[in-house]
């Protein structure tokens, strides 16, 4: 049943039609989540007892850092699907996630730096967390570069899938770096299991923003994937039908 759905999703015209119907809903929800998260984070949440209002950078920085890992995991998973089952849609999801993944990683690094200057007293340190996150940015950029360097796009997708799978070892390193080594970056706040270490009024906007980022990711990937699909299949019957129906 699930496999059948995946195979069906793997059919380009089906994917194109379904994603086209989903996009307006995703955009609406994304907008609402961003509006609520920003209002909660910038207006309703109280200032932090130590960091004052500068802690509000958390609502940009932390979801971006989470997404940098989440998008990479999706890419590695799609990469495995593309290598084993040769599903075209998996290749397309893999390569079209790379740009937005790099954007999230870049944003996490830069806003972390902006936050670090007033609080830690430095823009950058070479501790394990920051260094492994920088490595992740290079992985994303490497994937984009490798894909554009190979002309045969099916071969390029396979090469990129292997690179994505190799790089997956960096993900647990980033996540656990703050526990395995002494770093300047502090330990996890939300994902630790004992007592909650963030006030509820501060936590709720953070979670709203995290969901907003997830929707944003879905929107960007679908937009890019649809373009990619349209161009790859430009000579196919379904694209011709699509354009004749529109009354070109």
């Amino acid at each position: 049943m699930i496999m059948r759905f995946i195979y069906q999703l793997g059919s380009p015209p089906y994917f194109y039609a379904l994603s086209g119907r989903l996009l307006p809903w995703l955009s609406g929800l994304c907008f609402i989540l961003f509006a609520a998260g920003l209002y909660g984070g910038l207006v309703l949440a109280p200032a932090d007892y130590q960091q004052g209002d500068s802690f509000r950078i958390i609502y940009i920085h932390v979801p971006a850092a989470w997404m940098s890992l989440f998008v990479y995991m999706i890419m590695a998973f799609s990469g495995a699907m593309a290598l084993i089952w040769r599903i075209k849609i998996a290749e397309i999801i893999l390569i079209n996630s790379a740009h937005i993944g790099a954007v999230f990683t870049f944003l996490a690094l830069v806003t972390g730096s902006i936050w670090g200057k007033p609080m830690w007293g430095t823009w950058w340190v070479w501790d394990a967390r920051l260094t492994s996150e920088l490595l992740l940015l290079f992985l994303y950029l490497g994937i984009i570069a490798l894909y554009s360097a190979i002309d045969d796009k099916r071969k390029a997708a396979r090469a990129v899938a292997i690179l994505a799978l190799v790089g997956v070892v960096n993900i647990p390193i980033i996540h656990y770096s703050v526990e395995w080594w002494s770093t300047l970056h502090q330990g996890p706040t939300v994902t630790k299991f004992d007592k909650p270490s963030i006030d509820t009024r501060m936590l709720i906007p953070l979670l709203l923003m995290a969901f907003a980022y997830k929707f944003l990711y879905a929107i960007v990937v679908l937009l890019r994937a649809r373009n990619d699909l349209l161009w790859r299949e430009r000579r196919s019957q379904w694209v011709a039908t699509l354009f004749s129906k529109e009354g070109a």
Partner: peptide
């Protein structure tokens, strides 16, 4: 350099 902890709360 100051190392802040993972706790966030109002004053």
């Amino acid at each position: 350099l100051a190392k802040h902890d993972e706790n966030y709360m109002p004053p």
